[in-house]
Design a binder for these strands. Structure first.
Lengths: 333, 333
DNA sequence: TTGAAAGCGCTAACAA
DNA sequence: TTGTTAGCGCTTTCAA
């Protein structure tokens, strides 16, 4: 099977023009006589010529490729973002190189370098926490970076998020208004900025506003999985809590099912409000009340922001906060 | 901000060797005197040199990149496969370019050409159905292709699947053994090979084996979403069915919730068995009995197969069938 | 064990 | 409006 690669040179020869002219036609450069353009397009079609993006990338120093670092594509939260990212990337003629990091700093740095070696034009980063090592890599390279659904306290790079503090505050306030005095805060690692700094702050603010006392015994740290939620239920009940604000849907549904298995009625005996309004909140019975985050949009807007950065356009603001809401469904009174 | 790109040439100069030698060191070519290697590595480290993968790709005609065509990353079934794909790709030093196709032939062809333009070394394709146009593109290019979790009746390219016919047969047999005489078959479009040719065949075989009559009124075609499952329930109940084999978990949980909303008890009054054993089957109450498919493994094995194809290694068989099972949980008696 | 030099396929000045 | 000609940064013969 011989290499039958058609190059720009073949097209030029067949069309009796120079490579430059073919290049102009391919790139939509207006400085080509219509007749010439027509002739070239015809040859391109006949020869079934397809420009080699790698050669193009080398010559032009642009790969029209965006690197996307994601903790885990098989997690619904992140895959929803990823879909928004890819759609907007496609809209602007970019492809995405997707790389799973498992949220670990070492792998993140490694993957980042790998993407930079591939000369991506920009990077979308998703992660639970931005470590110093990762931050150092960001500032070392001049490739634009945007964080999607991820918080970095020192806002060096672009980012798109919702106001996690405010959203958590509203959620907890709702539970307080419903008369709950012992409200559990159930989240992933508190060392992650988004949990420890943003959501926990919102939780505390809501308590203060409703004159409720902050109590460490009501704070639960846990991995983000269904089974972890199930496992947590005994401790939650022992704490005396009558309601919980939970930072992840999968975790929340674990708690819900655990309560069900214990014969506790939601929302009558225990109220729950969760954070991501994913499909899981709708398949649960009762359906879970939740903060609504525009996941797809967070991905989409991050990528739009990145395209501006890559084009060196003027940016009004590189930290974008999208609106969020509370949707009351079946797990709150 | 000036371009501070370090090239192989800079390294060569600093180390007093030729570019060729640096290239050898970078690529682990053994024909380099240890002392030279050490000196070069030292300079690489000092200059913080990172080889340009694009230039490498152009010169060597290999990009160490795999194109992945996926209907929708935000669908749990596909994202599980994607995770397996990326992990094995990473293991073999490849990156993946992920492109969503929405399962449509036009976009699939477009995306495929785009990936080929980027000179990917191989392609993993996921889709509900392989159309003639897509098949034509496959055979036109000599880039190896592997189907993951997708069926192509004429097995032109590599593929990794479970035996959908047999799995469906077992599932339906179980329902028949439990005494159900009217068993519904609820699936996505029957024109998709995997549903119409494989699963439906299995369904029919099971009926025949249990001396049950095939009845068109028990066959339901539907989109794969939760809400579609909900909407289907009235028709299912009208059909007189007392059990259903469902080809998608999200659809299944829709049916389950719809039955719950109608006051029908699962599994006492109606049995359900679904197909993908995703997280959804565990969060449901009762938990859904399901065919178990090794989703991650399907992705992983496809990619392993693709690496062999890309290396032109001998392949024992390019159609790989992974084992599947039935896991009885709460929705069957 | 090393180096020289010719590309890989394309873009982008610069000339004409 | 078109063509000529350097590269882009690397790999890969071929010689030495």
């Amino acid at each position: 099977m011989e290499k039958q690669t058609i190059t720009i040179y073949d097209v030029a020869r067949e069309a009796n023009v120079s490579m430059a002219t073919v290049s102009r036609v391919v790139n939509g450069n207006p400085n080509v006589k219509p007749a010439t353009r027509k002739k070239v397009l015809e040859v391109i079609d006949r020869l079934d010529y397809r420009p080699n993006a790698v050669a193009r990338g080398l010559a032009s120093k642009k790969t029209t490729t965006i690197g996307v670092i994601i903790p885990d594509v098989s997690n619904m939260f992140f895959s929803s973002l990823a879909r928004g990212i890819d759609d907007v990337a496609t809209m602007y003629k970019y492809n995405i190189i997707l790389a799973n990091s498992d949220g670990g700093s070492t792998k993140e740095v490694q993957v980042l370098n790998n993407l930079l070696a591939k000369q991506v034009d920009g990077i979308i980063f998703m992660g639970h926490r931005i470590t110093d090592e990762v931050r150092a890599e960001f500032s070392r390279s001049k490739t634009p970076v945007v964080l999607a659904g991820s918080i970095d306290p020192d806002q060096q790079v672009g980012s798109v998020n919702i106001d996690y503090t405010e959203a958590a505050k509203e959620a907890v306030s709702l539970l307080a208004k419903n008369g709950n005095e012992k409200i559990a805060f159930i989240s992933g690692a508190l060392i992650d900025a988004i949990n420890g700094q943003n959501r926990l702050t919102g939780y505390k603010e809501a308590l203060k506003e409703h004159n409720l006392e902050y109590n460490e015994g009501l704070i639960f740290e846990s991995p983000y999985e269904f089974k972890d939620g199930l496992a947590l239920v005994d401790r939650i009940l022992n704490s005396g809590a009558t309601a919980a604000y939970i930072t992840d849907d999968e975790l929340a549904i674990g708690v819900l099912d655990g309560l069900y298995d214990h014969g506790i009625k939601v929302p009558d005996d225990f109220e729950i409000i969760t954070s991501n309004n994913s499909l899981l909140t709708d398949v649960a019975r009762p359906r879970l009340s939740s903060i609504t985050q525009p996941l797809y949009d967070i991905g989409a807007v991050s990528t739009r922001l990145l395209t501006k950065l890559m084009n060196k356009e003027e940016i009004e603001q590189k930290t974008i906060v999208l609106p969020s809401n509370i949707m009351e469904k079946g797990s709150t009174k």
